[in-house]
Design a protein around this nucleic acid. Structure first.
Lengths: 139, 139
DNA sequence: GCAATAGACGTAATAGTATAACATTAACAA
DNA sequence: TTGTTAATGTTATACTATTACGTCTATTGC
């Protein structure tokens, strides 16, 4: 399924992929596939599959990340994301903001755990839930 | 069958909670809420909410974990799980097995990231996808 | 040029996951 | 008993995702 080879990916985005990506990039936070669909009806989107197909490609090439714990998607905010094996997300339960980060030590720890265990690691999902700095300050 | 001991869990499980937990404990792998429902129809289960309500409580007290990337649930295999802030799961994409583990260093890394960032961490989701040792050997 | 092919797209239908809303029953204290 | 709370039962619905199939278009090979 998902090959993380977007360094070699030169093919341009299709129209639908571009529309979905632009919608995500304009939004400061995660969007569900169906809310993307609703926001793209004016551009001719009619069915979920148009969104899901675009998302699949965008996630493949690393321009979009899927947040498993939210069933939602965010545009990648990381300049040239391809070197980070282990991307993590901090999701604020108050304001919904999502902060993407990448810690080398965490990636190393998971890699060494996999090596010790004999697990062939393909992909990691790391999602933190809590309150962002701003929302902590307000509380 | 061993009794689980949770520090903050004094109330005994209700009938539905016990049935759902037993079903998960008998199964070597994750189950979706709806497959639990199907398997408990003989015990009188009729509607998804009976399963979801039981699962919510079981997850709360730590007897069951939710796998976000699978929309599925597993019984906790960890003796006295309450001390592990950062539980992680390695999911085999070939055979579906799930290995639960807990690495102190990862928890420390995430905690220190949160401290530096001002993020008030409530819960972490760490899910690894790949091939387990056995499936790598077979390939 | 012109099939043949492959990929993106459109559309309808359906499968799978989760919760809202409300009625009923059980447990139990005043 | 009666009032209260928690758990349960039930129906309906919302939300998320995929299957199946048909069309269109761009490219490839002849």
């Amino acid at each position: 399924m998902a090959e993380h080879q977007h360094t070699h990916d030169t093919k341009p985005l299709t129209k639908n992929q571009r529309l979905v990506l632009e919608r995500l990039e304009k939004t400061d936070g995660p969007l569900s596939a169906y809310s993307i669909l609703d926001e793209l009806r004016d551009q001719g989107f009619r069915a979920p599959l148009q969104v899901y197909r675009a998302l699949e490609k965008l996630v493949d090439v690393g321009l979009v990340h899927r947040l498993e714990s939210l069933n939602a998607f965010v545009a990648c905010r990381h300049p040239s994301c391809q070197n980070h094996q282990s991307i993590a997300f901090a999701i604020c339960e108050q304001c919904g903001s999502v902060k993407e980060f990448s810690e080398a030590r965490i990636a190393e720890d998971l890699t060494s755990w996999a090596a010790e265990t004999g697990f062939m690691l393909k992909k990691t999902t790391i999602e933190l839930r809590g309150l962002c700095k701003d929302c902590v300050a307000k509380a």
